[in-house]
Amino acid sequence: MPTVEAVLGDITRQQVDAVVNAANSSLLGGGGVDGAIHAAAGPALLAECRALRSGPLPDGLPVGQAVATGAGDLPARFVVHTVGPNRHAGQTDPELLASCFRRSLEVAAEAGATSVAVPAVGAGAYGWDPDEVARVAVAATRETLAAGRAPGVTLVRFVLSSPAVHAAFERELASS
């Protein structure tokens, strides 16, 4: 079984094959993790995202889905963008949140990644409780890996920038 772990840190500095971006549907950058990843990756990432918008995703990336791009100046090879459900906008279905984690791992595996850094999608500006995000994320990740839907992925590292969110993930990993 692949390793699933949680660390306190900066997702933009992770030495992994793929970094998951908690994106907005426009894919053109934003705040939080999305803004940090775009800033660290540089203009190449934005150019690839604009190409997606002018090509296969003219209406943006739907909630719960994922798409991969290059990683620009990040130490990773890929960025996997996923759009979490926004609780403030009435998107309260945990299945949409779980889909973010499942699809991110599947897309990372399709791109050839073996190691993936994942943030707490939804736990920031989108208003999800960190304990619920941890529960959903860990369950969806373990289910995806156990079912073989992310072949080749040997490491999933939840990278959390807040001690409280990190603690929520540590608790969930220890109890499940």
Rank of each mutant, 00 (worst) to 15 (best):
T114W: 11
T3R: 11
G122D: 14
P2C: 12
L46S: 09
T141I: 12
V153D: 07
S99V: 04
T114M: 12
V138G: 06
V33F: 11
V107A: 04
A134Y: 03
L105D: 06
R102P: 06
G84M: 02
R13V: 06
G64I: 03
R135W: 10
T82E: 00
L97Y: 11
R149M: 07
S176P: 06
E170F: 01
S104P: 02
R87Q: 09
E172I: 09
T141P: 14
A23L: 07
H38S: 12
V16P: 12
S161D: 13
A150Y: 12
S99I: 05
R102Q: 08
V80D: 00
F158L: 12
P62S: 05
L173F: 03
A18V: 13
G127P: 12
L27S: 06
V156G: 10
A168W: 07
H81W: 13
Q14A: 15
V138T: 04
G70E: 00
F169H: 00
S161C: 12
P94Y: 06
G30R: 03
S176M: 11
V20L: 11
G64A: 01
G148Q: 03
L96E: 10
A22K: 02
E5M: 12
V80G: 01
G42T: 01
L28A: 09
A146Y: 07
E143G: 07
A117E: 13
T154S: 15
C49V: 00
A109R: 04
G29M: 06
V16G: 07
G152V: 14
L46F: 04
G148T: 05
V116F: 09
G124V: 05
A39K: 15
A167Y: 00
V4M: 08
V156C: 10
T12K: 04
A147L: 08
A76H: 10
V133Q: 10
G9H: 02
D59F: 02
E132A: 08
V63W: 04
L96Q: 15
L8S: 13
G55H: 01
H88A: 14
A47G: 08
V121H: 10
G42K: 01
G30V: 02
G152F: 14
W128I: 08
A41Q: 02
V116T: 11
G152I: 14
V136T: 14
V79P: 01
V136E: 09
V159K: 09
A146R: 15
A76C: 10
A41C: 07
G42L: 01
A146T: 05
C49W: 01
V116Q: 05
A41W: 06
V118I: 15
E110H: 13
A98E: 04
M1N: 07
A98L: 11
P75S: 03
E143M: 07
T114Y: 06
T3H: 11
P130T: 01
L27F: 10
P130H: 04
P94K: 13
D93P: 10
P85M: 02
E172K: 08
H166L: 15
A22H: 02
G55S: 11
D17Y: 13
G55F: 00
N86Y: 10
H88Y: 14
A6I: 08
G60N: 01
N86P: 07
D17G: 09
S26N: 14
F101N: 08
L28P: 10
T92I: 05
E48I: 00
V63H: 03
A23K: 13
P163Q: 13
L46A: 03
G30S: 08
P62T: 04
V63P: 02
L57V: 03
V153L: 13
Q15W: 04
L96R: 13
A120K: 02
L173A: 12
R103Y: 05
A109Y: 11
A109Q: 11
